[in-house]
Structure formats: C-alpha cells, structure tokens
Nucleic acid binder design. Structure first.
Lengths: 206, 206
DNA sequence: CTTTTGATAGTAACCGGAAACTACCCTATG
DNA sequence: CATAGGGTAGTTTCCGGTTACTATCAAAAG
C-alpha cells in the first residue's frame, strides 16, 4: 500500500477519470452515501481540497460517475444484442450481459437505490430516468420483433413484459444485495430467466 | 399544521408508538437517511432531546420501525392468502395485497434500499433477511401446492419462481420509485402479474 | 541548451452548519 | 410530593466547500 509517495501531479483529464474510478470503487465497499470527498482524496493519495479543483461539487462527481456507467453499460448491451441470432436469443444475451456487468460493479445497484439519487439530486434522477426508459424501450423492441417473427406469444403485452424483465433484473440485484453472502447473483439469474422465457414464448415453441 | 400547541406529556408507550409512526411518515417524504431526530421531534411538537428519553439510539428507532412494518405486513398477507380459493388465487391476492401495502407506505421500499440497512446496522439487516427468506418460503409453498394440484406446470422450479415473484415486486417498486410521477405502482402491477402467471400456469389451463 | 515565466495541480488550514447524543434542570400529573 | 416525561443548552464530530499559498511542468525566450 505504500507505493505512492511520488504519485502526484496528474493531468486534469486523468485526474477526473481517476476520481470517477475511485468513487465507484469506494461506493461498492462503503455505500454511496458514506463516500466522503476525504475518502476519495485519501484513496488517490491526495488532499481533500484537490478533489474540488476537478469538480465544482460532490454532486457533479456522482453525475460523472453515472454517465460513465451509462456509457459502459450501453456499449456492453449493444454488443450483446448484436450477437443474437434472433430476438429472443438477443434478449437472453442482453440479460446475462446486464447481470454480469452489475455483478462486476456492485456500486451500480447502490447508486440506483441511494437516497442521493432519489431525493437530493434531481439531475441525477433525470439521467437515471432516461437510462431506464431507454433501456425499457430497447427490451420492448426486442420483444415486439420476437412477436412478429412468431417467437413470442401473439397476445403478449410487450410493454408490460419489458417492465417485468427490468423488474426481474432489479429485483434479483436487490435480493442478492440484501442476502449478500447467501445468494449469488449470476446463479440466481440463471435459474430465473428460463421461467421468464416461459411467460413470453409462443405456445407452439415449447 | 399548527394544531397542537398543547400536545404534550404522553405516556412512554404511546410516545414510542408515535415516534415510530412519525419516523415512517418522514422517511416516506424525505428519504430514510435524511430523517434526523430533530425532524422527528419537530413532527411531534417536542424537543429533540426528548426523543432519546424513549430510545437509546437512532438505530433502535429504525429497528422498531422495521418490526412494526413486519408485523403489519405479515398480518395483511396472511389474511390475503387465507381468502384464496386455491393456491394460485391465494398467490394473486397476496401479490396485490403486498403491492397495496407498499403503495400505502412509500417508506418501506426506501427502508429496504437504504444504505443504513445495507452497511451500517447489522441488526437491521438480519431482521430484513429473515423477513425476506420467510416471505420467499411462503410463496414457494403456495407454488408447490399449485403444482401438486395441477394448477402450475409440473416441471416448475418453484424456488426460482418464488425468486422471480419477489423480484417482480421489488423491481416494480424500484422502477415506480425512480419514475415517480410517470408510473403508478398499482397499474404497473396489474399489467405485469398476468405475464408472470403465464410462466407458471399449467399448459392445459390456458 | 539553458533560463524564465505562466498556467495549474496540489496543499494546509479553515469555515459554517448539521447531526447524534448528553448533563442537568424543570414541571405536570397521579 | 414523588417521579417520570420533557425542556435547555450544550459538546463533539464530521463533512462539503473555500481560500491563500506552493510546487511542478511545459513552452517561449534568450
């Protein structure tokens, strides 16, 4: 741990990036609302005041973190969807890519559930709302395609199914977050997804 | 709101109850982590120091709140389940009773998601874990009964289905919490539940 | 190739405010 | 009048944010 007596003076861009990285990391360990600017500074081997040279406020840091997460997530999910051979296959790939992404970054669900998001920062809320709605639309689109190709039930309410899909992801995450140590996200997800598939698959396909 | 200038000197038990009530109420409005003992006192027309005459610490207050919630929730869900004519009917009644209960007490999801629970108070976490596992077992039991009676698919993984069920509830709550004002919990739930039913219902029953 | 200089990352000390908890006193009520 | 519930007025700690100063670096100037 004593590897940075000389670790100073980064360029502004790199420092901003490091702040985002370090903040995500700390949030995973201590929880979003318990990360102080002092903690961030300490994790980088820098004083607390230095943080404010790169961001005008703590809120701006969380906003930057959320944007970083959005960009990564969208890239990963887009790639996963493109690899699918048909809409339902794409849906499955997106699901597990999503789960894996979150499993690798435990700070994300915590950010989604933080008081900070829900109550204190309207800008952050707005950003998350956009991400959520966009994502839901994407899922609904896949389901619609599946329906048109006869892979999903003809009478499927694709909008509601997309909501269920998102709920499944978020619910699994919340549960494994509370039952930390007793449940493992990936394995729960693997058991649960087939049941969801039963709900949407065309009867002829079983 | 200026209706109690004379509202003082309650018995210790009643005061404890009022603290719990008022705390839940404030948590619904401001968010769990933003409720201060000052807020509680103010909401009761009492000074902040007085709160600590009835609870040894703030943590103890949250614990009491959670126990209060558990007792109410279990009573409501038990009643709903008892009214069901068959296991699947009971499941549906439990679902909507659950949704209605949460819709009427917005503080509950916030408590579940609060950092306070996840990081700071192991006792609270333990309590919530018990509630969650007990609830899941109850759902799994209903599903098992349904399967035995031929109402649910014979090859259903009831454990995983129970997880999906819980995930659906929690996911819906989280979504409507983030999309507050754009989505309404009850109506989303009403659209989503039928899709869940499709997943577990025996093929012959459609 | 060296020196100067201007921009800026980083430091240290501080501020205002808020929150949990406490010590001590008061007073309404039975 | 005794006592339990309540009030007053702190203390301590911590956190976000600011400010005045310093160290470093790169490029222009010589």
């Amino acid at each position: 741990m004593s590897s940075e007596p000389v670790r100073k003076r980064l360029g502004a861009n790199e420092r901003r990036e490091e702040i985002v990285r370090v903040t995500l990391d700390l949030a995973a360990r201590q929880g979003v609302d318990d990360v102080t600017t002092q903690d961030m500074a300490q994790a980088m081997g820098v004083t607390q005041g230095a943080v404010f040279r790169h961001f005008p406020s703590k809120d701006a840091i969380w906003l930057a973190v959320m944007q970083w997460v959005r960009d990564r997530l969208m890239a990963v999910l887009g790639r996963a969807a493109a690899e699918g051979r048909d809409p339902l296959d794409a849906l499955q790939r997106v699901f597990f890519a999503h789960i894996d992404f979150i499993a690798g970054k435990p700070a994300i669900p915590r950010l989604l559930m933080s008081e900070h998001l829900h109550a204190r920062s309207p800008l952050l809320r707005k950003l998350v709302t956009e991400i959520l709605l966009g994502f839901e639309a994407k899922i609904a689109g896949l389901l619609e395609d599946a329906r048109k190709q006869g892979l999903a039930r003809g009478d499927l309410d694709t909008q509601a199914a997309a909501t269920l899909y998102l709920g499944m992801v978020q619910g699994l995450v919340l549960q494994t977050s509370i039952l930390r140590g007793q449940r493992e996200l990936r394995s729960e997800a693997a058991r649960t997804f087939p049941i969801f598939l039963q709900a949407i698959r065309a009867p002829s396909d079983r």
